[in-house]
């Protein structure tokens, strides 16, 4: 029983990291109509920038997270201006290829700035594991869950209650009609890229202490894609639930079946969904799409 809970909690923590990456993909997809293949590399870049603030600049954890988020917000706008905006009328294939280009550039580019050796990222929260329903949970995993849930709550309020949030949702539903309402569509797409890249930064900082900081973090992209499909592509709640499903499944499968194939389990789940329920968990609920 304890083992099961233990696995569940660590699966959930991993799942939240996937969920944040998946959420960024879904938000950019609804707003700009583009599947962003650079999202995993942006997560990786977030981890590098986070480790720089934390260990090179010596800032406290919270400040490092905030500074990385701000820097990555600007990176998101820059990314949009380079990889999306000039190509937006050329069709989605061209834009997808350009995001793949950016991801290759980033994955190799970090070597130039940070060197080839993986960097160590200390735990976000130190201290002994906490007892939770008889399972021992590292404080870091609790921090991941609490911060992610707070962020999702903030995001829900923001999209529902603020004018900026409503304008971004309008653009995500229909760009032309949003323009006819007097909404500056390119600016809203800028904001969406900025916010999605901030989510990537946070995912990167969460992932960093679980692994080392290296381009391997960019491989989170495939887990995030699996999450979006499992949850229902394009759905915000789907990205979150999908991320949790993938995180929990792979943690259990790695423990009980084989940890050598850890990465394969997410794909098994993905293929299972594509066969049995291709629209994903939330695929049918139109109103939840944005």
């Amino acid at each position: 029983m304890n083992t099961i809970l233990q696995l569940l909690f660590s699966g959930i923590a991993m799942g939240f990291v996937y969920a944040l990456c998946a959420l960024g993909i879904v938000l950019i997809y609804s707003s700009a109509g583009v599947v962003n293949f650079a999202q995993g590399s942006l997560v990786m870049l977030g981890a590098y920038i986070g480790v720089t603030f934390l260990t090179k600049a010596g800032l406290p954890v919270i400040l490092s997270v905030i500074c990385s988020a701000i820097v990555m917000g600007f990176v998101g706008v820059l990314f949009e201006r380079i990889a999306y905006y000039p190509l937006r009328d050329q069709g989605s294939t061209i834009v997808i290829i350009s995001t793949i280009g950016v991801s290759v550039f980033l994955n190799d580019g970090v070597y130039v700035l940070w060197g080839r050796a993986p960097l160590f990222f200390p735990p976000l929260l130190g201290g002994p594991p906490l007892e939770l329903l008889g399972a021992r949970v590292p404080p870091q995993n609790i921090a991941i869950a609490v911060i992610t849930l707070a962020l999702l709550l903030f995001q829900t309020m923001f999209f529902k209650r603020t004018w900026l949030g409503r304008k971004m949702r309008a653009v995500a539903q229909d760009q032309d009609t949003a323009a006819l309402m007097g909404i500056k569509v390119p600016k809203m797409i800028d904001f969406t890229f900025a916010y999605s890249t901030i989510l990537a930064a946070i995912a990167g900082i969460f992932a960093a202490p679980l692994f080392f900081v290296s381009p391997a973090i960019a491989q989170i992209l495939s887990k995030a894609f699996a999450s979006t499909v499992v949850g229902g592509f394009g759905s915000i709640p789907g990205a979150i639930i999908g991320g949790l499903c993938v995180g929990v499944t792979e943690t259990f499968a790695a423990y009980y079946l084989s940890s050598a194939y850890r990465d394969a389990w997410a794909f098994l789940l993905l293929i299972l969904f594509l066969l049995v329920r291709p629209q994903g968990i939330f695929g049918e609920i139109v109103a939840e799409k944005v």
């Binding site: 004018w163 409503r166 304008k167 949702r169 309008a170 539903q173 229909d174 009609t177 309402m181 007097g182 909404i183 139109v286 109103a287 939840e288 799409k289 944005v290």
Partner: peptide
Amino acid sequence: FPAFTVRENLLIGGV
């Protein structure tokens, strides 16, 4: 806007 309520659709018209 399909995912907006009637009220939200009207409000966005005045944004």
